[in-house]
Each structure stands twice: as C-alpha cells, then as structure tokens.
C-alpha cells in the first residue's frame, strides 16, 4: 500500500501538533485561548490527528474526491427580485446598531511607524 508520502505525508511524519500550531489555528479560527486551554486542545487535537493518520494506509491514487454526494448539476434560479427583509428584521438582532447600520469595533490601525 502507498504510504501517501507523495501527498506530503504530513500525518504520518509528524502526527502531533505543537502548542504554536494550536495557537496559530486558534488565531485563524478567532478563538482566544489561555495557555492552559492551548495545552488542553493540543492533547486532544494530537490524539485525533494521530488517529486519522490511519488514512495513510489506503491507496488513493486515481481516486476522485467526493465533495457532494448527490450528482446534481446546474441548479440555478431565475434572475427575479424577491422582497428583502425590512431593516428592522435585518439588523434588529445585532448586538450593536445605530442609524440603520450595524456597528462593529473598528479594525485597529497602526500608523507608518507601527505605533498603535
């Protein structure tokens, strides 16, 4: 059986995730984690990544991936305008809104010197 190395072989070669990787992923997923939580997740993610490495046992050469299980194609709608929600319905449940807009904290900007 193929070891899957031609795909990068990542799961087999380095199955356990590091704390830095967990930190990076937590950032990608916008989850604030304490160091204790990082460790908690590191152990659990490591266990499951180790487990899924078993997929490397299988020869997947010439196998097409499945992203949709039913083979439907060209599902299209006509270009017809339908009623929208009222503004109140649309943004009424936003945690913060003003003057018809949803309010969000501004993205922090730094000036050219990098000072916040």
């Amino acid at each position: 059986m193929s070891s899957g190395r031609e795909d990068g072989g990542r799961p087999g070669a380095d199955p356990v995730i590091t704390a830095d990787e967990v930190r990076h992923i937590a950032h990608l997923a916008r989850l604030e984690l304490t160091d204790r939580e990082i460790e908690w997740f590191r152990v659990r993610l490591g266990a499951i990544l180790e487990y899924v490495a078993k997929l490397n046992e299988i020869d997947i050469e010439n196998v097409e991936p499945t992203s949709h299980v039913i083979l439907m194609e060209n599902v299209l709608r006509d270009d017809v305008v339908r009623p929208s929600l009222s503004r109140d319905e649309a943004i009424g449940s936003a945690p913060s809104s003003r003057n018809g807009f949803v309010a969000a904290p501004r993205i922090i900007e730094t000036d050219d010197s990098g000072v916040v």
Binding site: A90, N99, F101, V102, A104, P105, R106
Partner: peptide, 9 residues
C-alpha cells in the same frame, strides 16, 4: 468615532 465601523450589508 474612531473606534467604530458601521456596516451596510
């Protein structure tokens, strides 16, 4: 208001 962005969807 330097700390808020207003969003129009």
């Amino acid at each position: 208001e330097s700390d808020v962005s207003f969003v129009d969807f």
